[in-house]
């Protein structure tokens, strides 16, 4: 293989693995910026992966190539619905955010495998999808010499979309009225309340956005990577997204960068065998890397400092 081909494979594989993380990690960012810790991203991604797969299998024959794209929206929709549980528990019912998130993580695989068995003749996994999200070659950009081949040929359109959504998220959080208010309830809900901001509504928005984006992340996993749904379709990606959110210090653009970084790490475990130097290193180190890095970074550089001040705190409106 030529160097450029190797690079192209590396970059596109990395991006394919980054895409779900980018969406889910951005989701987590919205939730936590609003003050609701969301360790339930894993569960939300499972629901997204499942609903995306089911939609794909059901409507694929009729809708054709556009199916997985609609499937992503369906995945996001169901992720959002599922996250309502978390919002209800943490915002209205004063549940501990971690307990509630853990419930999502326990409930999602149970529910989705249960339904898979009902929908697909008692089997624990769905059939293979036939309308998958294939790689994409950018029309004009791919003609650029070298760069075009490495970055814009047979690559993950979704990763680029994710990066774009990263910028939009930054714009929303930092520049708009909604963003300012969302952040205010994550920093000091009581102060926001005295200024007439509806704390509950804001926190709901944060959680539901995380449900939508996390669901899309799951939909990407099942429709572009595993190409079916089973209990192992999502195996830690939600937690890795959480790690990316922390590594990116809750800042959308840095979160995207962290997600891509973790995506690279994951992809090296898969394509490392083709790369001379890396092939000697055992996969396990690349698989572990995101988690290890997060601990080190969190311990040495971040501490609690960058997290929204009221992250994880239940706000009770006084009467």
């Amino acid at each position: 293989m030529s160097v450029i081909t190797i690079l192209m494979t590396m970059v596109s594989t990395a991006l394919i693995y980054s895409a779900p993380l980018i969406f889910a990690a951005l989701g987590g960012t919205f939730s936590e910026r609003g003050g609701i810790v969301n360790v339930g991203l894993e569960g939300i991604m499972i629901v997204g992966a499942f609903s995306g797969a089911v939609f794909n299998l059901t409507y694929g024959p009729a809708l054709g190539a556009v199916t997985p794209w609609i499937g992503l929206l369906v995945a996001g929709g169901f992720g959002l619905l599922f996250s309502v549980l978390h919002a209800l528990a943490t915002v209205n019912f004063r549940a501990d955010h971690i307990v509630s998130g853990t419930v999502l993580n326990m409930l999602a695989p149970a529910l989705c495998v249960f339904l898979t068995k009902i929908f697909y003749d008692g089997k624990g996994q769905t059939p293979v999808l036939d309308q998958s999200l294939s790689t994409f070659t950018f029309p004009i950009l791919s003609k650029i010499p070298v760069v075009g081949e490495i970055f814009f040929t047979r690559t993950s359109l979704l990763a680029y979309l994710g990066i774009l959504i990263g910028f939009i998220s930054w714009w929303i959080l930092i520049k708009t009225k909604f963003g300012l208010r969302l952040r205010s309830v994550g920093e000091n809900p009581q102060a926001a309340d005295t200024l007439g901001i509806n704390v509950y509504l804001m926190r709901y928005s944060g959680v539901l956005i995380s449900g939508f984006l996390g669901g899309i992340g799951g939909g990407i996993m099942s429709q572009s990577i595993s190409l079916n749904f089973s209990v192992s379709t999502i195996a830690g990606q939600g937690f890795m997204a959480l790690a990316a959110m922390i590594f990116g210090k809750w800042h959308p653009l840095k979160v995207v960068a962290a997600a891509i970084f973790f995506g690279i790490s994951q992809s090296l475990a898969i394509i490392g065998a083709y790369i001379p130097v890396i092939s000697k290193i055992d996969d396990v180190w690349f698989q572990m890397a995101p988690y290890l890095i997060t601990i080190v970074v969190l311990a040495l550089f971040i501490g609690k400092f960058y997290a929204p001040a009221a992250d994880g705190e239940t706000y009770v409106k006084s009467k």
Binding site: L85, A95, V103, M106, P109, A110, L111
Partner: peptide
Amino acid sequence: PPEIVDIVIATIIFFVGINY
């Protein structure tokens, strides 16, 4: 499907979580 019991378990913990 036996997963129904995991649904039950998760639901129990959900209610424990919202004990308030």
